[in-house]
Write a protein that binds this DNA or RNA. Structure first.
Length: 453
RNA sequence: GGCGCCGUAGCCAAGUGGUAAGGCCCGGGACUGCAAAUCCCGUAUGCAUCGGUUCGACUCCGAUCGGCGCCUCCA
């Protein structure tokens, strides 16, 4: 599985992160279904914006070494930030995280191969792909080649192309840019060539799944197909999977609208990053998602319900309501939920429906457990299912139930105050614990439960 | 101009020919010293609008209105 990774010149925004969360969902679903996944995510560390931002402060006569060093300083910084964000969101690390700059020789060889096949041509030190040489060009994006108008805004530096729709494979160096040596003179790789080169190098001539955001369908993925299939002479990717965009508060995210957020912004506003993960993954990946803080709050509350249920199953039953009129076999009920969950996930990652299967199970078993306590064996079976689902959603893990001495002492103090019917003191201690993130639950049998809240 | 998507309760959202899942919020009740958690009850005679096909349509077809995307750098 190959996923188009970040361009590391700044903080990733939550729209970028939605795509990486979708890819993580896809990957984890395969893994949970016992498939081996070999995952490659590229790090784009040479590109126009990176060059712009990293070179601005350098003098005009800076050496190529200096320019490379400045570029590397910027990309290494934001690569680290990016990986931290993924970790915060519980996104699994890819097996391969190739940096584009580490594969320049591979890209050059690929361009040479295309040149040898007559699919590439050189103009003033740059190399272009001849789209006319590949009949299937445009198939992925459903573009009508006749209908592709010659661009009204052809880049000033690319006027020498044979056709306005041909794209660049290798860019001749311009003054003030870092460069590499190549058969065509000093230059740097085009944006599209890196994914083809690294994907073929690390995953081979056949890739099962390639994914990215919908905006990459054209031209990026279309061009990747052209490059890889032009070189290989056969289909390269079996399945393309694209995640939809994220809107914010009903509008397209933009800095001028003030609705442009990074993960750090959300955390600073008090959001639980895992709730953000849940909010994203509880919507279908192929639908535009409107992010809102109200939605984030709803996600937090939904998660509370699942986590509270998990903790209830980890503990012992407290039934006391007499016989349950609609007694059902919990293990059979659980199996129904598991089947519904997997049927939904197998149906193009229908997460809203998969989660619904979990919630109806929670409602049913909560009600039953109120009346006829589930046995230890049944509770463990439920927990195993929650773990199974959590291996995909990564939002309701088992949490170690260890209390420090101070918390235990406070709980004991409150119990004594309660025994003495000193309600004011009991409430005061309960508030104090709440401020420490501990929520108490008084049980029917007089014991006190607690959870992190 | 070409290609494509979407419009389901206050909010999010599944369903896509057989009579509206689920979550959040909200109201009433039970339990509780009060809470919390949990439970019970309630909350869309209707799925943008108007036509058509059908025994039957939210689901199919057509039109209209509204929102969005791509065809150019973008997750």
């Amino acid at each position: 599985m190959y996923t188009c990774g970040p361009t590391v010149y700044n903080y990733a925004h939550i729209g970028n992160l939605r795509t990486f969360l979708f890819q993580d969902l896809l990957k984890r679903t395969f893994q949970a279904a016992r498939h081996d996944v070999r995952h490659c995510m590229n790090i784009t560390d040479v590109e126009d914006k990176i060059i712009r931002d990293s070179q601005a402060a350098l003098p005009a006569d800076a050496s190529n070494e200096t320019r490379h060093a400045a570029m590397q300083a910027l990309t290494e910084r934001f690569t680290a930030v990016f990986l931290e964000d993924l970790e915060t969101l519980q996104v699994q690390r890819a097996d391969y995280l190739p940096k584009a700059t580490a594969y320049i020789p591979h890209m050059i060889r690929l361009v040479q191969a295309l040149e040898a096949k007559g699919l590439a041509y050189v103009r003033e030190g740059s190399v272009y792909y001849r789209i006319a040489g590949l009949p299937q060009y445009g198939c992925l994006a459903h573009l009508d080649r006749e209908g592709m108008q010659a661009g009204t805004s052809v880049d000033a530096d690319e006027y020498e192309r044979d056709s306005a729709t041909d794209f660049v494979l290798w860019k001749a160096a311009k003054p003030g840019e870092p460069w590499w040596d190549s058969p065509w003179g000093p230059g740097r790789p085009g944006w599209h060539i890196e994914c083809s080169a690294m994907g073929m190098e690390l995953l081979g001539d056949r890739v099962d799944i390639h994914s990215g955001g919908v905006d990459l369908i054209f031209p990026h993925h279309e061009n990747e197909i052209a490059q890889s299939e032009g070189c290989l002479g056969h289909q390269w990717v079996n399945h393309w999977v694209h995640g939809e965009f994220l809107m914010v508060e009903g509008q397209k995210m933009s800095k001028s609208l003030g609705n442009f957020y990074t993960l750090r912004d959300l955390i600073q506003k008090g959001a639980d990053p895992v709730a953000f993960r849940y909010a994203i993954q509880s919507n279908h990946y192929r639908k535009v998602l409107n992010f809102s803080f109200e939605g984030l709050r709803a996600a937090e509350n939904s998660l509370k319900r699942i986590r509270a249920f998990r903790q209830r199953m980890e503990g012992e039953g407290q039934a006391g309501g007499g016989p349950w009129k609609e007694a059902q076999a919990p293990l059979a009920r659980l199996e129904l939920a598991r089947e519904a969950f997997w049927a939904a996930m197998a149906d193009d990652l229908n997460t809203p429906e998969a989660l619904a299967a979990i919630f109806t199970l929670i409602s049913d078993l909560n009600a039953q457990d109120d009346h006829v306590a589930l046995t230890r064996e049944e509770r463990d079976a439920v927990l195993a299912f929650l773990d199974e689902a959590d291996s995909i959603f990564a939002a309701w893990p088992h949490e170690d139930a260890s209390l420090d001495l101070e918390v235990e002492a406070l709980i004991e103090a409150r119990s004594q105050a309660k025994s003495a019917k000193n309600w004011a003191e009991a409430d005061r201690v309960r508030d104090q614990l709440k401020a420490m993130g501990i929520v108490l639950e008084d049980r029917k049998d007089g014991t006190v439960g607690w959870r992190k809240g």
